[in-house]
Lab assay of single mutants.
Amino acid sequence: RGFLEKAAVKKMAKAIMADPNKADEVYKKWADKGYTLTQMSNFLKSKTAGKYDRVYNGYVIHLD
């Protein structure tokens, strides 16, 4: 289950990176699912340092 969630989160993160207008909708879905910042950090780990920082930081702001 965790692997599928991670894959889904990364897919949506890539969608945000391609079209930032989708961010609020995606952040709301993640918040509704109760994803914590720790979970998001783990889901968005990448071999490329900083690749998903913008998405993660946007989610931090959304939760605030």
Results as ranks from 00 to 15, higher is better:
R1I: 15
R1D: 15
R1M: 15
F3S: 12
F3I: 06
F3L: 06
F3M: 05
L4V: 11
L4M: 07
L4G: 13
E5T: 09
E5I: 13
E5N: 08
E5F: 08
K6Q: 13
K6S: 09
K6M: 12
K6E: 07
K6I: 14
A7S: 11
A7H: 09
A7Y: 15
A7I: 15
A8R: 14
A8V: 09
A8K: 13
V9W: 02
V9S: 01
V9K: 00
K10S: 04
K10M: 13
K10A: 05
K11H: 08
K11V: 09
K11T: 07
K11G: 07
M12P: 01
M12N: 06
A13M: 02
A13S: 03
A13F: 03
A13I: 03
K14W: 08
K14Q: 09
K14C: 13
A15E: 13
A15N: 07
A15R: 10
A15Y: 07
A15H: 06
A15K: 11
A15L: 11
A15S: 12
I16S: 02
I16Y: 02
I16Q: 02
I16N: 01
I16E: 01
M17N: 05
M17P: 00
M17L: 13
A18P: 00
A18E: 15
A18F: 08
D19T: 04
P20E: 06
P20C: 11
P20H: 09
P20L: 06
P20T: 05
N21E: 13
N21W: 09
N21V: 07
N21K: 13
K22C: 15
K22H: 06
A23W: 02
D24L: 11
D24N: 12
D24W: 09
E25K: 09
E25P: 05
V26N: 03
Y27K: 00
Y27A: 00
Y27N: 01
K28F: 04
K29T: 13
K29Y: 13
K29V: 10
A31D: 06
A31G: 04
A31K: 11
D32N: 11
D32E: 12
D32P: 01
K33T: 11
K33E: 08
K33N: 09
K33I: 10
G34W: 03
Y35N: 00
Y35H: 03
Y35S: 00
Y35G: 01
T36G: 05
T36N: 06
T36R: 02
L37R: 08
L37V: 08
L37N: 04
L37A: 10
L37K: 10
T38Y: 10
T38S: 12
T38D: 15
Q39P: 01
Q39V: 08
Q39D: 13
M40D: 00
M40F: 01
S41C: 14
S41Y: 10
S41E: 09
S41L: 10
S41D: 08
N42Y: 14
N42A: 12
N42T: 11
N42K: 13
N42I: 13
N42C: 15
F43H: 04
F43Q: 03
F43N: 02
F43I: 10
F43Y: 08
L44H: 00
L44R: 00
L44V: 01
K45Y: 11
K45N: 10
K45F: 09
K45H: 07
K45W: 08
S46T: 08
S46K: 05
S46F: 09
K47C: 14
K47L: 04
T48W: 08
T48L: 07
A49H: 14
A49G: 12
G50T: 06
K51R: 05
K51F: 15
K51S: 05
K51P: 05
K51D: 05
Y52R: 00
Y52F: 10
Y52Q: 01
Y52E: 01
D53S: 07
D53Y: 06
D53I: 05
D53H: 05
R54H: 11
V55K: 02
V55H: 03
Y56N: 01
N57T: 08
N57K: 14
G58C: 04
G58R: 02
G58Q: 04
Y59K: 01
Y59P: 00
Y59Q: 00
Y59G: 00
Y59N: 00
V60H: 06
V60W: 05
I61C: 15
I61Q: 12
I61D: 13
H62F: 14
H62I: 03
H62L: 04
H62T: 03
H62C: 05
H62S: 04
L63E: 02
L63D: 02
L63C: 06
L63K: 03
L63P: 00
L63Y: 04
D64G: 12
D64L: 15
D64H: 11
D64K: 15
